[in-house]
Design a protein around this nucleic acid. Structure first.
Lengths: 336, 336
DNA sequence: TTGTAGGCGTTATCAT
DNA sequence: ATGATAACGCCTACAA
């Protein structure tokens, strides 16, 4: 049992086991060059004293902390508001990290002021690496850290010309498939509610929509939201004003789709008879909207796992792919 | 600019500024006993070299890490699945922590195996404190850590007889108000879908329901869920079998209520004409269910902030209240 | 196989 | 007001 105030050190364990500090260190770190009986004695002493290595001391010499930082752009609306994206990412990341006994340090970085904090922190702690999730606009931070030799991986293709490794899904392809399905089933006035255009996910999904319509020679009708329910609701009402006869809409996130569904129903549209809708994400909510939402599934937790794995490779000094693209899948429910 | 491989140390800054390490340390830590010109010279050197203090070295001597751990019981279903509780807590906690420039270390602790990890970690890192959110059953970990002198605060009254400080809401009172409202508006066959009974939130909300019905001389009808949508859906169907004539139901979480709404509609019940429903939480979803859900609001983010603040006080060596109870509020929308 | 000793980058206690 | 100097707890050559 460790006692209050002053936990045992290597030194004390060594004393108790009747060996040198070096030997204790070897045992604790699993070196194989220690005689069986000695190892046992040390282990017993460790047990009896309740010894736990001091991570700060260890880091000081090893230059590692066995922890990685996950940086999330805290925008008032989105992060943790009611979106399953971040929770999913966190979950995936922590699964992978746990497997190798590393810790997850979470940092919100909304303001540019906090960018300073983040940078200082990453440097000061010697975190073993930094993960970024869904940045807005052109953020120099990932590139800056990478250039200083810090392992960095992003979820979502980073804007700008920094070339840090990232994991993303095939937004364009996924949306083209979805909109293609709408067209194939006879819809002709197909609108979209785009995500924020300072985010790759927003831009790429809009591109997919545009490409699909262009190919079919159909006209575009675009409204914009910021991935929140509320914005989806507002955008849908706008769309209904712009073209009361629209017969389908692709919406860049399920949450926005949820808001849009409400606007559609309020306007007396039957779904999917009058207007078909397809969302993007496939969060659990999608199965419970009324009617259940057709959507483009992206493997959110898997993205978290992959960025974590990539980072661990990087930190281990390996080369990793500059780009990993995960597939999406069209899930057809009752809104199409 | 710090260079790759080997960032500058106190020593180098001292050299460059032409002073001793001690003086640099003083400046960096904001001591007031340093002459103006010297301070400036040091600051300039810090700037030019891109010096950032090494946290490990610092922790080694100060015995602090400026970081706190947040332990979440990772159950396959709940954490981060689609519940706004944990995200809200995290958000509140990180707001408070950021204000004092401390870091948040996130740890999932589902298995008992991971309990070992958590304990070791908390000890090894000298985290300044540990936060627990919504534990299941009787968990000895908070008490154990507290006894070892570690500052600990829980969100939700801990089961068992360990006496660690906690922050919770008035579950019983909130539910009694809600059920009281149902009764006052003429409902007589009022069922409930309870949360998991190994959690205080589950037990207390059930108690509130029982008390309210007992007072009114009404009969109880109870089904159980685990706070997920799916379980709410299942439980509601069961309830409908048990008593096809029920005219109201109090549901221990909004997510379960969402699932239940679906079951109710599938069974052809009109809401609220045939059956009234009230949930608990007031997550954003509640405004978007069909119809919008009446519910008992609990201030989730505020809970996060409070546990963080309490912990900070504790860590600073102050006394804190053993118990902080936050109020709830009945939000009436269209399901009542 | 085991022990010795030096150093990791800071802070803090003394002198000065 | 500033500067030596001794910890802080551990890892790791290097020596034995």
């Amino acid at each position: 049992m460790a006692m209050l105030g002053g936990r045992p050190t290597l030194e004390e364990v060594a004393l108790r086991a009747g060996v040198s500090r070096a030997t204790v260190s070897r045992v604790v770190n699993g070196s194989t060059t220690v005689a069986e009986p000695i190892r046992d004695a040390v282990l017993r002493a460790v047990e009896e004293l309740g010894y736990v290595p001091n991570q700060a001391a260890r880091s000081l010499v090893t230059q590692r902390t066995d922890s990685v930082a996950l940086i999330l752009p805290e925008t008032p609306n989105r992060v943790f508001s009611d979106d399953q994206f971040f929770p999913g990412i966190i979950r995936g990341v922590s699964q992978e990290l746990e497997a190798v006994d590393k810790q997850l340090v979470l940092m919100m970085a909304g303001s540019t002021a906090s960018h300073g904090r983040v940078e200082r922190y990453a440097l000061a702690r010697h975190v073993d690496g930094v993960l970024f999730a869904s940045m807005h606009g052109i953020d120099p931070l990932p590139g800056t850290l990478a250039r200083m030799g810090m392992p960095v991986v992003c979820s979502g293709r980073p804007l700008g010309r920094d070339t840090v490794p990232y994991v993303d899904v095939d937004h364009v392809g996924g949306v083209r498939t979805a909109v293609g399905h709408l067209i194939a089933s006879g819809r002709r006035r197909i609108a979209t509610i785009a995500g924020p255009l300072d985010m790759v996910a927003g831009v790429d999904r809009l591109t997919g929509y545009r490409e699909a319509l262009a190919e079919a020679g159909l006209r575009c009708l675009v409204a914009s939201g910021d991935f929140t329910r509320e914005s989806g609701h507002t955008a849908m009402r706008q769309l209904l004003v712009d073209d009361p006869d629209l017969d389908a809409v692709f919406i860049a996130s399920d949450l926005m789709a949820h808001g849009a569904l409400r606007a559609l129903k309020a306007a007396g549209r039957r779904i999917p008879e009058d207007v078909a809708v397809i969302g993007f994400d496939d969060i659990e909510l999608a199965r419970y909207t009324d009617p259940p939402l057709s959507t483009v599934r992206q493997p959110i937790v898997e993205i978290g796992r992959r960025i974590a794995r990539q980072l661990l490779w990087l930190a281990a000094g390996e080369e990793v792919d500059r780009e990993v693209i995960l597939p999406t899948e069209l899930i057809l429910r009752d809104t199409t």
